[in-house]
Structure formats: C-alpha cells, structure tokens
Amino acid sequence: MNCQQIKDELMLLVGSDQLPDEIQKHLDTCDDCRKFWSELVSLAESMGTDDEFRLDRATIEAAVSNIDRRIDLRELDRVVEVGASWKAWVPAAAAMFLLVGISLIVYMVGGFGDRNGQADLSPKDSTWVIFVNGELDALDENAVAYILHQSASYEMLAEDLTDEELEYLENNFDVEDIL
C-alpha cells in the first residue's frame, strides 16, 4: 500500500486499539504517516468517551420511573381501545335484539290470524314473517318489496317478476295467494 492508502486505512482505524501488522510496519518506516497517525490518536483522545456523558443516579431513576409510567399508560390505552371496540358493538347488538324481539311478537300476533296455518300476507305482516323465518336475503327483499309496493292491489303478473324472483316465490310461498 502507498502512503495515501495507508492514511485512508488509518482514518478507519481511529478508535481502534491495535493496528494491523502491515500498517504498523509502514508506520515504523514512514515519518509522514506516523505523524498523521499521531494526530489521529490525539484527536481520538480529544473526543473523550461515553463515560463523559454520565447522568447522575437521580436523573436515571427519574427516567426509569417515567418510562415505567409511560409504558403503563400505553398498556392502559390499549385495554381501553379493546374495551371501546367491544362497546362499539353494544348499540348494534341491542338494535338487533330489539328487532328480533319485535319480529317475534309480530310473528306470534300474525300467527293468530293464519289462514290454513299460513301467515296472513298483508303487506306489513308478510314482510315480518319472511324476516322472522330467516329467509330474507337481498334477492328476497327485492322480490317482496316489489310485490308489496309496486302493486297496490297485490295483484302481480308473473311476467313482471324476474326468473329468480319468481322461482324464489314459487319455492317459498303460495304464489297464488300473493299474485
């Protein structure tokens, strides 16, 4: 290695305790590089050590307590967040419970007016009957809504329904009663 390469290496070795043999040998024979290294050693000494940045015990203990407290707060926040997310479902669950309860009541009341064991398919009641039976999905809802609201007299031409709607009604209801 030439002197410049040695100096480049020496700069990387600032702070190291030992020099590689090859570099040490070069320093033994080269005044310029030896002076350069001496300056770097002096620089390293001027840079001090981490020991110069020693906090007193009280400051460290205060920091430890503060870290402890902040971790506690964060963990508490997390618990609250979990609690809050659970609570967010309460109104929805209550609404659902209420809806099912009302549906059940309507179903039972509607049941007294059955005709041959079938619920009375007045517009309002038939909706509840279908709902309580758990049969109302998006398609069903469309079909029933169409029947109940598009036709004031509840008379519906089969050709006004889509094939899917008609098939659903045929499979699930006495279509004659509805149309």
Binding site: M11, L12, V14, E39, L40, S42, L43, S46
Partner: peptide
C-alpha cells in the same frame, strides 16, 4: 459507511488541527 467514517475523521482532524486540539 466506511466512506462516511473516513469523511468524519478527516473533517474532525481538520477542526482539531485548526483549534490546536490535536498536535
């Protein structure tokens, strides 16, 4: 990283020499 370290040492050496901290 080595280049950054070398540059740092070079700069610090210049400052130290200018300030008379490193002889």
């Amino acid at each position: 990283v080595k280049t950054l370290y070398r540059e740092a040492v070079k700069k610090l050496r210049e400052v130290a020499l200018a300030e008379g901290w490193a002889q």
